[in-house]
Nucleic acid binder design. Structure first.
Lengths: 192, 192
DNA sequence: ATTCTTGGTTAACGACGTTAACTTTACAGT
DNA sequence: ACTGTAAAGTTAACGTCGTTAACCAAGAAT
């Protein structure tokens, strides 16, 4: 049919499409193959396993997220403004790309093998964006660890997205109010 | 349908045991049946589906968690102390019962059907423990919603557990430091 | 004594990830 | 032109999964 990586490209494309349409759990190698128009076996010519295939998508997602966050940092000068927008942007990414967010951060080692350490570096850049601002604002304080602070903020944002996506947040709470409060609480990391 | 039987008890017991030993993804109806010493089909005499079976375990987990949290509230009088301990206790539960926490809060609707709404009420009691303290401390402020505040704190705690269980937290950060910082940031919800 | 009910089984369906073995295609060396 | 070989894809299968239809054994009720 197609040569030199063309099929590989199609597989990734259809996998992403199916992921967005139906969610990770509903995507099977057989469905991807059917969508592409090849046999399930052919996928194994380009990817070692289902995990490996989705790790490629994770990598793409990490790239998208970083790009989105990096733009925010560039566009604003004031650290507090940057931090605030960074939080909002992260939340937005998670809530608007639930399937991507799922394979990137929500699936556990039992479901999807942990992301290879080398590629994990890329993921850490996102955390570093938060840490950098914290360093800028609170770097002088001796007992403050920016990486630790960033991880705490990340926990808050990640938790908010997780609960929201899992529909565990009380329905009486308006999503926008919830987001606002999460961001408001996150930026407190800049104070004191 | 739910009948009262010895076999039902054994099924739940072995399911829990397998869950603790191997994690949700590795537990199959066949394995449970083998551990109990019956056929996979027999499980369907007592549970409508795999989801239903695990929902029973979720219910049990919710009970355990609530018990653990309720004790903390009883044992301390000072609201701030209560809140702080509540956070620590929640984190402790998540980190020390990863498989329970997984089925209770981490699995998404695609993997495990959402917990039935009626039983979900029980789960909400836990959130209410946080909300009650917030009401006690900040109830007078007109623009403060305790339920919303509790949900934000829950997001932080839940996110911290999720990231820790998924091994996404930077290895250079000591777990105890991370926990301390999370709690410290959580109790800020009591201020201002 | 015969029917009904309870509590279990056997065997199977369709779907899954993955693999071994085979075929087809393309092309390089003689 | 002919052959050897490597790449690209296929067919068929293995062992797993959740779940269901059909059957069966034994006790209770009539």
């Amino acid at each position: 049919m197609a040569r030199n990586g063309e099929l590989r490209r199609q597989i990734l494309e259809q996998a992403r499409s199916l992921l967005l349409d139906e969610g990770y759990a509903q995507v099977s190698m057989r469905k991807i193959a059917a969508a592409v128009g090849c046999t399930p076996t052919s996928i194994y010519l380009y990817f070692d396993s289902k995990d490996a295939l989705f790790h490629s998508l994770v990598e793409e997602g990490m790239g998208r997220l970083h790009e989105q966050l990096a733009v925010v940092v560039e566009r604003h000068a004031d650290p507090e403004e940057q931090f605030c927008r960074l939080c909002r942007s992260y939340l937005e990414f998670g809530l608007e790309n639930p399937e991507f967010y799922e394979i990137m951060f929500l699936l556990h080692p039992e479901q999807l093998q942990r992301f290879p350490t080398d590629k994990y570096r890329k993921a850490r850049r996102n955390l570093q964006l938060f840490a950098d601002i914290l360093t800028e604002v609170r770097g002088t304080e001796p007992d403050f660890d920016p990486l630790l602070g960033a991880t705490v903020v990340w926990s808050l944002l990640h938790g908010a997205i997780s609960l929201q996506l899992a529909k565990r947040v009380d329905a009486r709470l308006a999503t926008s109010d919830f987001i606002d409060q999460v961001v408001e609480h996150a930026v407190r990391m800049l104070q004191l």
